[in-house]
């Protein structure tokens, strides 16, 4: 089953410093029928103005991944960790038993991020944070893992049985992905357009996919930059 969530269905927040599109209920945007997809709880597509951001605020029992698509994102937290990440960088924070953090755009240009929250597979974890970086060239024509349980070279570790991939596919190309029984796939189009088993997706669209053993991801007349998450 492939359920398409068009770009226009996302919750919209437009402030003088933040343009946010939320794929799931978030903050004051609430739809009781759209609160999660398996352990995936939040998928926000945020553009943060220069020098602005989210001040100190707490989290608990959540795995939070920030993927920087453009600009820079500065993180500070109550464990003493600080980091500035640009394109090709990933921040993973495990809130565990509780953490305070801030996220600010430290630069004089906009910062575009995807921020993704997942319920961890175990509770009571010690709060932790890490950054990883990947080679943007390495995602061309393939699914490049950037976050996965156990981590690895260029891959952030996460406390959930999932893998996040990025891919950039030229026009007229295709990829195959095998969805194991009982697994979910979340697909989000960052740029361009893509079809999945014949269902067309444009920029900002998402697909929530279950019970599709073979996924064919194809581009037609234009390239696509997309994220695929394989999750329980």
């Amino acid at each position: 089953m492939i359920n398409i969530y068009p770009e226009a269905s996302r919750f919209r927040t437009d402030l003088d410093w933040l343009t946010s599109r939320a794929s799931f209920s978030f903050g004051e945007h609430y739809d009781p029928d759209n609160t999660e997809f398996g352990p995936l709880r939040v998928f926000n597509d945020d553009i943060i103005g220069a020098g602005r951001g989210f001040g100190a605020h707490p989290h608990r029992e959540m795995e939070i991944v920030s993927v920087v698509l453009r600009g820079q994102l500065k993180h500070e937290d109550s464990t003493g960790r600080k980091a500035i990440t640009g394109f090709g960088g990933v921040q993973r924070m495990s809130a565990g038993t509780g953490i305070i953090h801030s996220e600010v755009n430290p630069a004089d240009e906009e910062c575009h991020i995807l921020q993704i929250w997942m319920t961890p597979s175990e509770s009571g974890l010690t709060p932790s944070y890490e950054t990883s970086s990947f080679d943007p060239e390495a995602m061309k024509g393939r699914l490049l893992p950037i976050v996965a349980r156990g981590g690895g070279e260029g891959i952030s570790d996460i406390h959930q049985d999932l893998t996040m991939y990025l891919s950039r596919l030229d026009a007229g190309k295709s990829l195959e992905f095998r969805q194991d029984a009982g697994r979910r796939v979340y697909l989000f189009i960052i740029e361009g357009s893509l079809s999945v088993n014949g269902s067309a997706l444009q920029i900002g669209d998402a697909a929530r996919i279950t019970e599709e053993p073979e996924l064919t991801l194809e581009t037609a007349g234009e390239q696509a930059f997309f994220m695929l998450i394989d999750l329980p």
């Binding site: 100190a56 937290d77 109550s78 509780g98 305070i100 801030s102």
Partner: peptide
């Protein structure tokens, strides 16, 4: 069972 003070100055 937990109470924590926080501020932008002490992240």
């Amino acid at each position: 069972d937990a109470r924590v003070a926080y501020s932008n100055d002490a992240v």
